[in-house]
Design a protein around this nucleic acid. Sequence first.
DNA 1: CACAATTGAATTGCTCACAACTTAAATCGC
DNA 2: GCGATTTAAGTTGTGAGCAATTCAATTGTG
Lengths: 165, 165
Amino acid sequence: MPTLESQPQTHSADMDENTNTDNALCLEHQVCFSLYSAANAMVRAYRPLLDKLDLTYPQYLVMLVLWEEQGISVKTLGDKLFLDSGTLTPLLKRLESKGLVRRGRSELDERVRVLDLTPEGVALKSQASGIPHLMRCKVGGELSELKALKQLCDKALKQLHASID
Amino acid sequence: MPTLESQPQTHSADMDENTNTDNALCLEHQVCFSLYSAANAMVRAYRPLLDKLDLTYPQYLVMLVLWEEQGISVKTLGDKLFLDSGTLTPLLKRLESKGLVRRGRSELDERVRVLDLTPEGVALKSQASGIPHLMRCKVGGELSELKALKQLCDKALKQLHASID
DNA sequence: CACAATTGAATTGCTCACAACTTAAATCGC
DNA sequence: GCGATTTAAGTTGTGAGCAATTCAATTGTG
């Protein structure tokens, strides 16, 4: 598998430039575009369900993490969700202003925010319990297909993280 | 060390509730989250390549469509990209201000914008010709896997569009 | 023909994503 | 110990996405 530094040769080797370039471009474009469109559609499909909880999809992701484990830092949360403080800080402030999250400070390290749920934040979990099933219905498809989709997305994500340049 | 990124079945959100609901929730959540994270990572991976063309990924998508077919309306473009005028109008204005796109008016229907490329917009295509190969290297994986990923994304997208409620 | 309904774009307002930068606190090297 | 470096979080600015709304042009219906 050629890596980035060895790319121009293979490409110019097979002439009839238009056809090959266009085919490669086309397939590639369609994979990324399909991913992009499906992700947008997924977030859109969550909206009517999450509106009832007054949450956005990224906010819902944060709540999922905090329903599992409280007392984590913004950094840890960001590592789990692949989001940075520039995204999370304002999002967490919104969750705080809704009364769902507390943004404390670590006593061992004054830089660190310690994230906890309020009783209201904890209580919201039961209201969210029906969402996965509703989304499962919306997405449809066989379980095996969803597993395959997840696995392929995870593999692509891992590969994209590995090729940071 | 539980993380959201790479958990198969063993890691359920919480074991204190109904097992079926949690498993369903967990799997479902992870599919959507994987999709969301992979799409974000994909856009991020495009950035250094597209920076050279002074394009964002959504702008690149618009250019791909216009490199194929000019003279289309905002509506037609939106149907192809699954984006609405609220997203496309400001984006197209940015492409226009960069001198890549012309936003004319249809003479048959004064409501309709007719989108065309400037010579600079057309010329940019050759500069973009290497991008698909570079992205192909970044994403990695077998061709069959990418085809499967695309097919599963397309199926999910179609299903999500079908279940508009 | 008139006028109600529909349609294509644009606008407004809100919330991500993220690069680039800043600030303050902790840690490292010597 | 102490300056240099690293790290955690926050800030700023730009560009999506999209719901809701507006407006004008077109179409449909009587």
